[in-house]
Amino acid sequence: MTRSGFCHECDQFPCARLKQLDKRYRNKYHSSLVGNLRDLKTMGPEAYMEREDIRCHCAGCGAVICIHSNVCQQCGLVLPGRI
């Protein structure tokens, strides 16, 4: 096993433990940890974080959106494709 900064840099990526966690997040929150790590590897950290900054803010009011919710807690906007 190789230790590194990101899971996608490991020679065992995606390991069984990460696959289990990914399955739970895909089923419950419609978010793929493995997919996100692959995007991070492909896009690079700067572009990935720019995308996530946009994705994690409400299009209506700009508030930060929790991954565990499909409604903006500030303005009540329902967020399609979440949960």
Rank of each mutant, 00 (worst) to 15 (best):
R3S: 08
S4R: 15
G5K: 15
C7E: 11
C7M: 10
H8W: 07
H8S: 14
C10Y: 02
C10M: 03
D11R: 02
Q12K: 02
Q12M: 11
P14Y: 03
P14L: 04
R17E: 15
R17K: 15
K19D: 09
D22E: 11
K23D: 02
R24S: 15
R26Q: 10
N27L: 09
N27C: 10
K28T: 10
K28P: 00
K28G: 07
H30R: 10
H30I: 08
S32L: 01
S32D: 03
L33N: 00
V34M: 02
V34K: 03
V34I: 12
G35L: 14
N36C: 08
N36G: 13
N36S: 15
D39Q: 04
D39R: 05
L40P: 00
L40A: 03
K41W: 09
K41V: 08
M43H: 09
G44S: 01
G44N: 02
E46A: 10
A47S: 03
E50F: 08
E50Q: 07
E52Q: 09
E52Y: 01
E52N: 03
I54N: 15
I54H: 12
R55V: 13
R55C: 15
C58L: 11
G60P: 00
C61A: 02
C61P: 01
A63W: 06
V64N: 13
I65D: 11
C66W: 06
C66H: 13
C66A: 13
I67Q: 09
H68A: 13
N70E: 06
V71T: 14
C72A: 11
C72F: 01
C72N: 05
Q73R: 12
Q74K: 14
Q74S: 15
Q74A: 14
G76F: 02
L77P: 01
L77S: 10
L77E: 10
V78N: 06
V78T: 13
L79H: 05
P80Y: 05
G81P: 00
R82E: 14
I83N: 12
I83V: 10
